[in-house]
Deep mutational scan, measured.
Amino acid sequence: MKVMIRKTATGHSAYVAKKDLEELIVEMENPALWGGKVTLANGWQLELPAMAADTPLPITVEARKL
């Protein structure tokens, strides 16, 4: 699914347009965010693609819901 990742004042957030859902990312498998699992505030887990740590945000990526 397409997910937009952006930086907020409190960390990172994910927006899933198909579900009209925006949630804070509360847990990251990798400190650089990319190439691992993230957990959203509502409990969803997404697998993000591997990208460079300095990838500019906001960005829309293809993520997989676990």
Results as ranks from 00 to 15, higher is better:
Leu24Asp: 14
Ala53Met: 10
Ala9Gln: 11
Gly43Gln: 06
Glu29Asn: 05
Val16Leu: 14
Ile5Asp: 01
Leu48Tyr: 02
Gly11Glu: 03
Ile59Arg: 06
Pro58Glu: 01
Trp34Leu: 04
Gly35Thr: 02
Arg6Pro: 03
Gln45Lys: 12
Val3Arg: 00
Pro49Glu: 06
Thr55Cys: 05
Leu48Ala: 03
Gly35Leu: 02
Val26Ala: 04
Leu24Tyr: 09
Leu24Pro: 13
Val3Tyr: 00
Lys18Trp: 14
Thr55Lys: 03
Ala50Lys: 11
Met4Glu: 15
Trp34Glu: 02
Lys18Met: 14
Thr60Gln: 09
Met28Val: 07
Glu47Ile: 14
Asp20Ile: 07
Thr10Gln: 14
Ile59Pro: 00
Gly35Tyr: 04
Glu23Tyr: 15
Pro58Tyr: 06
Val26Cys: 08
Glu23Arg: 05
His12Trp: 15
Met51Leu: 12
Val38Asn: 00
Leu21Trp: 14
Ala52Phe: 06
Pro49Phe: 07
Met28Trp: 13
Arg6Gly: 06
Pro58Leu: 06
Asp54Thr: 09
Asp54Gln: 07
Thr60Gly: 03
Thr10Trp: 13
Leu66Tyr: 12
Thr39Leu: 10
Gln45Ala: 09
Thr55Arg: 03
Asn42Cys: 09
Val38Trp: 03
Leu66Phe: 11
Thr60Pro: 03
Tyr15Cys: 08
Trp44Tyr: 06
Ile59Glu: 02
Glu62Val: 15
Lys18Leu: 12
Lys2Ile: 14
Val3Phe: 03
Pro31Gln: 11
Trp44Thr: 05
Leu40Met: 05
Thr39Met: 09
Met28Phe: 12
Thr60Ala: 07
Lys7Tyr: 08
Tyr15Leu: 10
Gly35Met: 02
Asn30Thr: 10
Glu47Leu: 15
Ala17Leu: 15
Tyr15Val: 10
Pro49Ser: 06
Thr39Cys: 08
Leu46Ser: 00
Ser13Gln: 08
Leu46His: 04
Pro58Ile: 06
Met28Glu: 03
Ile25Gly: 01
Val38His: 01
Asp54Ser: 10
Leu57Thr: 05
Leu24Ile: 13
Pro58Met: 04
Thr39Ala: 05
Leu46Met: 08
Trp34His: 03
Ala14Lys: 01
Val38Asp: 01
Ala41Thr: 07
Pro31His: 08
Pro56Tyr: 07
Pro56Phe: 07
Gly11Leu: 05
Val16Phe: 15
Gly11Gln: 05
Asn30Glu: 08
Met51Asn: 05
Ala9Thr: 12
Met1Ala: 04
Ala52Leu: 08
Glu29His: 03
Leu24Arg: 13
Met1Glu: 07
Ala17Tyr: 15
Tyr15Trp: 11
Leu57Ala: 01
Ala52Val: 07
Asp20Tyr: 09
Leu46Phe: 14
Gly36Gln: 02
Leu46Gln: 00
Thr60His: 05
Asn42Ala: 01
Ala9Leu: 12
Ile25Asn: 02
Arg64Ser: 09
Val3Gly: 00
Lys37Leu: 10
Tyr15His: 08
Lys18Val: 14
Lys65Ala: 12
Asp20Gly: 13
Arg64Pro: 04
Glu23Met: 15
Ala53Glu: 14
Pro49His: 05
Ala9Trp: 07
Pro58Ser: 03
Val26Lys: 03
Val3Ser: 00
Gly43Arg: 03
Glu27Pro: 00
Leu66Thr: 10
Val16His: 05
Ser13Phe: 14
Glu47Lys: 10
Asn42Thr: 03
Trp34Gln: 01
Glu22Ile: 09
Leu24Thr: 13
Ala52Pro: 15
Lys65Ile: 15
Thr10Ser: 13
Ala50Phe: 13
Ile25Pro: 00
Val26Thr: 11
Met4Pro: 02
Lys7Trp: 10
Ala17Glu: 14
Asn42Phe: 04
Ala52Ile: 05
Leu48Val: 04
Leu66Arg: 05
Val38Tyr: 04
Lys2Ala: 11
Lys65Thr: 12
Ser13Val: 14
Glu27Ser: 13
Ala41Ile: 05
Ala41Phe: 05
Ala52Gly: 09
Val61Asn: 00
Glu23Thr: 13
Leu40Asn: 00
Glu29Ser: 09
Ala50Pro: 13
Leu21Ile: 14
Glu62Phe: 15
Thr60Met: 12
Thr10Asp: 13
Pro58Cys: 07
Gly43Trp: 02
Val3His: 00
Arg64Leu: 13
His12Tyr: 15
Val38Thr: 01
Trp44Arg: 00
Ala53His: 12
Met28Lys: 11
Arg64His: 11
His12Lys: 02
Ala32Phe: 14
Thr8Ile: 09
Glu23Val: 15
Pro56Ser: 09
Val16Ile: 15
Lys65Phe: 15
Glu27Asp: 13
Glu29Thr: 09
Glu62Asp: 10
Lys7Met: 10
Lys37Met: 12
Glu47Cys: 13
Ala32Ser: 14
Lys37Phe: 10
Thr39Tyr: 08
Met51His: 02
Leu21Glu: 06
Lys65Asn: 11
Val26Gln: 03
Glu27Arg: 09
Leu21Ser: 08
Lys2Asn: 10
Trp44Lys: 00
Glu23Gly: 05
Glu22Thr: 11
Val26Ile: 12
His12Arg: 07
Ala9Val: 10
Met51Phe: 06
Trp44Gly: 00
Thr10Cys: 14
Leu46Lys: 00
Leu33Ile: 08
Tyr15Gln: 09
Ile59Phe: 09
Gly11Ser: 05
Ala14Ile: 15
Lys2Val: 14
Tyr15Gly: 02
Ile5Arg: 00
Ala14Asp: 01
Leu57Tyr: 08
Gly36Ser: 05
Glu22Cys: 12
Ala52Tyr: 06
Lys2Tyr: 12
Lys2Thr: 15
Gln45Phe: 08
Trp44Cys: 11
Thr55Gln: 07
Leu66Gly: 05
Ala17Cys: 15
Glu23Ile: 15
Leu57Ile: 05
Lys37Thr: 12
Leu66Pro: 06
Ala53Arg: 10
Arg6Glu: 04
Val61Ala: 02
Met1Pro: 02
Glu29Val: 06
Ile59Asn: 04
Thr55Ser: 05
Gly11His: 05
Lys37Val: 12
Thr8Val: 11
Pro31Asn: 10
Lys37His: 08
Ala52His: 10
Ala41Cys: 06
Lys19Phe: 15
Val38Glu: 02
Val38Gln: 00
Val61His: 02
Asp54Tyr: 06
Val16Asn: 07
Glu29Asp: 10
Ala9Tyr: 08
Thr10Lys: 13
Glu62Met: 15
Leu48Thr: 01
Met51Pro: 00
Glu23Cys: 13
Glu47Arg: 09
His12Leu: 13
Val3Pro: 00
Arg64Gly: 05
Ser13Tyr: 15
Met4Lys: 10
Lys7Glu: 08
Gly43Ser: 00
Met4Asn: 09
Leu40Ser: 01
Thr39Arg: 10
His12Ala: 05
Asp54Leu: 05
Ile59Gln: 10
Glu29Ile: 05
Lys18Thr: 14
Pro56Glu: 12
Thr8Glu: 07
Leu40Arg: 00
His12Cys: 07
Val61Lys: 01
Val3Lys: 00
Leu48Ser: 01
Ile25Tyr: 00
Gly36Glu: 02
Asn42Ile: 06
Ala17Pro: 14
Thr60Trp: 15
Ala32Thr: 14
Thr8Asn: 10
Pro31Gly: 11
Glu62Tyr: 15
Ser13Lys: 09
Leu46Asp: 02
Ala41Asn: 08
Ala17Lys: 10
